[in-house]
Design a protein around this nucleic acid. Structure first.
Length: 883
RNA sequence: GGGCGGUUAGCUCAGCUGGUUCAGAGCACCUGCCUUACAAGCAGGGGGUCACUGGUUCGAAUCCAGUACCGCCCACCA
């Protein structure tokens, strides 16, 4: 690099270095004798595109992995994508719909062909986008949850649990998504308070022959369209108001169907009317009551959420249309007593936002009790730590109440459940059709392959991603606890850190822990860092419909990847939602520019053997060495505690304030003059150390400049430069420097307040026999320092650094009245402060109870204050005489 | 309805087991500077009753209790 531009241009360097890193396989890891450091990526949806949440998450991952790499560990970041069953399938369905094709018409095979096509077209775009961000994933290890080996792992796992007796098929009330036409798990249902109505309906008592009498009871319901499926009316046996109903039968309005009145504790007496209509097919609790009382189940709503012929009326109507219509009909028939406004929690599908319909269907379940128990222990024992810790509570609560996991989905995109049905309706579960046939023939030797029919459902996506930390290394392992782990798995497992959002703590994190414990007997990661959710400036979630989500690639294009990374990290403490603001990215870009320009300065120094290092320069060099070591200690501590944004801010200030504003200004030779070799060498070394420190956060600009500091060989990279280590240093160096710096600040403040030109050298008197860093003060503050015993009777402005008194003489330019007023104010403050300290010291109980160090400190405060008061009084006296 | 977390400067947040002059940082803001690395900059500056109330203590932003508001998780009183 010959001429450095005045501004840093990210565009010119990012692609270049990323290509260089790839060409040299710097991201690739193989097991070796070094300590491994492993991260598996939270696999994004295969057809997804990069959003701000990904940027946050993957920036954090990349910072951790790059840091570990520079710390000398064998760092491996495994990337990949998730097939995302529902999300992908619904996208493919939508696309086919545009072409006028319905998936039912083309059949499974053909549909899957389209889906794979779609995956080939869109799959992996997001991984390309991660490259733009600078992510140092081991791309050779890229995995996909539905690639053959990983699918096999999923199937094996299913067979394993089935044979263990933990997977069972059962008819259950499931959360049915009438839009996606599949069952979803409890966790995929979002309850939202929704305005609805509470309809009070009259049910007339039957005369025993199916005719209404004039007596009736009143029930309250939010779902009048389901009355045709009522199997009973239920009252609490303790409810005296309803004792007269015992043994009676009532008639369902409109269809006049006779149903019994039953009694069950479940009914709350003081809710609604105390009479509950029991509709076993369309409500979970009602289903359970139905089981207890042996009630018939009548399912009147089809998979699309429309009333079927069993409803007898309103057949073919959508459930919500039917609701409106039936209310009208009930009103006309006189059965509607009243309608109340009512807000109740309604379940919505996480994916499609359709209102969930409780629906009875045959589904596959995985028992959770044992798995959850073990996985809870993993976290409670601290073998896996959550950052921040507060999520342990959430986790515990869920684990203690985990319900069996509904793992079947009525979809095609995914791993098909390896259950094979025999003509007699029984089934066998085996990993392959061949094995299934064998198992079937054991039951019935005459069976042939074509007699078997595989279950139509696929498995929940999470049933594959829970294996991720294992299967990416050794897909043979899941489902085979006795299988000897291959070399990769043995080396990389357990992984170190997982960075993910708290929204998938149950979906994914908890289940990975379960699978890890079950198949490996060991937790899948040591630490889980939960990020916050990225929100916009005013706190709204980023969403497509709101249009408040910027395209990260545009931002990278505009500001550079390093700037975007800084922008995301600046305000992201673990577990806190982060409020995205483009201003932060601008701040990142400004920092890039600052680094760039500091390098321009350093690189522009002419070095001459004939020049000797000055005292000031030596002072600066010694000081920064100490400062650097001190700060590295702080940074390491932040990293250990996963306080990434604090680590970043600490380095940011070290670079900007300490290195640029203090150090460089201190050692900078006069304009046009060369610098001595000793100082130059130190300056470059410090610069390089800073680059290394900040590299995990800003990979591109640091590589660009590191490569330019000195000639590097092909194949060298800052990526593998060791993290700078803190050296032992003398803390008094820092103390002395800060005394000097405070003197400089004091003079600068006086200059600024009084509008004194920076070019004018001012006389600075210090009342002391010695003061540290006088040459430095003279250079930085543009003053001429004299050490004196008394100020004498010259005019000027005094200030204090600690207990030292300093004085800028400004003969004839001092507004005595103003100075006097200011000094009196200071004196007043000091006297009050002293009074406070003395009150403390004269408090017997304080002196008795407080630790010695604290008392000692109060004494020192008292002494300091007294000395300040003394000099203020002297000053005031002097000023008064010169009025 | 149950649980968890939060409330500190205009904004986003630090402040670990109570005690250094503890009330902080970054950004934003104000003032003055085109000082030959950087105006994406330099120097200086203002700004907070630490949500509220009470308690514990010699001493509370920090510990305890209550109140208010905010957020998250869990939970289908039909």
């Amino acid at each position: 690099m010959k001429e450095l531009a005045a501004k840093y241009s990210a565009k010119d360097v990012e692609d270049k270095w990323y290509a260089y890193w790839l060409a040299h396989k710097f991201f690739h890891s193989e097991p070796n004798e070094k300590e491994p450091y492993t991260i598996v990526i939270p696999p994004p949806n295969v057809t997804g595109i990069l959003h701000m949440g990904h940027v946050l998450n993957n920036t954090l991952n990349d910072v951790l992995i790059r840091k570990a790499r520079m710390d000398g560990k064998n760092a491996c970041w495994v990337p990949g994508t998730d097939h995302a069953s529902i999300a992908t399938e619904s996208k493919v369905v939508a696309r086919l719909k545009e072409q006028g094709i319905r998936k039912e018409d083309i059949g499974r095979e053909e549909f899957l062909r389209h889906a794979w096509e779609w995956k080939e077209e869109h799959g992996g775009i997001i991984l390309q986008q991660l490259r733009k961000l600078g992510c140092s994933c081991d791309w050779d290890r890229t995995r996909f949850t539905m690639e053959p080996a990983l699918s096999e792992a999923v199937i094996n796992t299913f067979v394993y649990f089935y044979k263990k007796g933990w997977i069972y098929k059962g008819v259950r009330m499931v959360n049915w998504d009438p839009e996606a036409l599949t069952a979803v798990s409890d966790d995929e249902v979002i309850h939202k308070d929704t305005k609805s109505h509470f309809y009070h309906l009259k049910y007339y008592i039957s005369d025993g022959a199916g005719q209404p009498t004039d007596k009736f009871l009143v029930i309250a319901t939010t779902r009048p369209e389901t009355i045709m499926a009522d199997a009973a009316i239920c009252v609490n046996p303790a409810d005296e108001r309803h004792h007269w109903l015992k043994g009676k039968k009532v008639l369902i309005p409109l269809i006049n169907k006779e149903i019994p009145v039953i009694e069950d504790d479940y009914v709350e007496m003081d809710f609604g009317t105390g009479c509950l209509k029991v509709t076993p097919a369309h409500d979970v609790h009602d289903y359970e009551i139905g089981l207890r009382h042996n009630l018939p189940v009548l399912d009147i709503i089809d998979e699309h959420g429309k009333l079927n012929e069993k409803a007898r009326i309103l057949v073919g109507e959508d459930r919500f249309v039917a609701r409106k219509k039936i209310v009208k009909m009930l009103e006309e028939s006189g059965n509607l007593v009243k309608t109340e406004e009512y807000i109740s929690p309604v379940g919505y599908s996480e994916r499609t936002d359709a209102v969930i319909e409780p629906r009875l269907s045959a589904q596959w379940f995985l028992k959770m009790d044992q798995l959850a128990k073990v996985a809870l222990e993993t976290v409670e024992s601290g073998r896996t730590q959550f950052i921040p810790e507060k999520y342990v509570n959430t986790y515990r609560h869920w684990m203690e109440n985990a319900r069996d996991w509904c793992i079947s989905r009525q979809l095609w995109w995914g791993q098909r459940i390896p259950a094979y049905y025999l003509p007699d309706g029984s089934y066998v579960v085996e990993a392959t059709p061949e094995a299934a046939l064998k198992a079937a023939q054991a039951k019935n030797p005459s069976l042939k392959a074509e007699d078997l029919h595989q279950d139509e459902d696929v498995l929940d996506t999470w049933f594959s991603s829970w294996l991720w930390p294992i299967s990416v290394f050794d897909p043979q392992k899941p489902g085979h606890p006795d299988h000897q782990p291959n070399a990769d798995l043995a080396y990389y497992y357990p992984t170190n850190d997982l960075v993910t959002g708290p929204d998938i703590i149950f979906f994914w994190v908890a289940r990975m822990i379960m699978a890890g414990e079950e198949f490996m007997g060991k937790e899948p990661f040591s630490n889980v860092y939960f990020t916050g959710i990225v929100r916009d400036k005013i706190g709204r979630k980023m969403s497509k419909t709101l249009g408040n989500s910027p395209n990260p690639l545009d931002l990278i294009e505009t500001y550079g990847a390093d700037a975007v990374r800084i922008g995301m990290l600046l305000c992201s403490s673990a577990g806190n939602d982060i409020f995205y603001d483009e201003a932060q990215i601008k701040q990142g870009a400004a920092f890039c520019n600052k680094i760039w320009n500091s390098y321009r300065l350093v690189k522009g120094f002419a070095v001459s053997e004939d020049v000797k290092q000055t005292d000031t320069q030596r002072h600066g060099v010694d000081w920064f060495a100490a400062k650097l070591s001190e700060t590295i200690g702080v940074v390491e501590d932040h990293y250990r505690k996963f306080r990434i944004s604090d680590a970043l801010m600490t380095i940011y200030k070290l670079f900007w304030d300490d290195y640029c504003s203090w150090y460089l200004e201190t050692i900078k030779p006069p304009f046009g003059q060369p610098i001595d070799p000793q100082t130059y060498k130190a300056t470059l070394e410090y610069f390089e150390a800073l680059l290394k420190l900040i590299h995990p956060v800003m990979p591109f600009i640091t590589e660009e400049l590191w490569q330019d500091i000195m000639p590097r060989k092909e194949g060298e990279t800052i990526m593998y430069a060791p993290t700078p280590k803190a050296e032992a240093y003398d803390p008094s160096i820092l103390e002395k420097f800060s005394l000097a710096a405070e003197a400089v600040n004091g003079v600068r403040a006086i200059r600024a307040q009084r509008n004194l030109p920076p070019k004018e050298t001012l006389p600075l008197k210090i009342k002391a026999s010695a003061y540290p860093g006088i040459p430095l003060i003279e250079k930085m503050a543009n003053v001429k320092v004299t050490l004196i015993e008394e100020f004498g009777d010259t005019q000027g402005v005094a200030f204090m650094v600690g207990t030292h008194e300093l004085f800028v003489t400004l003969e004839g330019r001092v507004n005595v009245a103003e100075e006097l007023e200011k000094s009196r104010k200071d004196l007043d403050y000091q006297q009050k402060f002293l009074a406070g300290v003395r009150a403390k010291l004269s408090n017997e109980r304080f002196v008795q109870n407080a630790p010695a160090a604290v008392i000692e400190n109060e004494r020192k405060k008292e002494a300091d204050s007294l000395s300040k008061i003394k000099s203020l009084e002297e000053k005031i006296a002097f000023l008064e005489t010169s009025m």
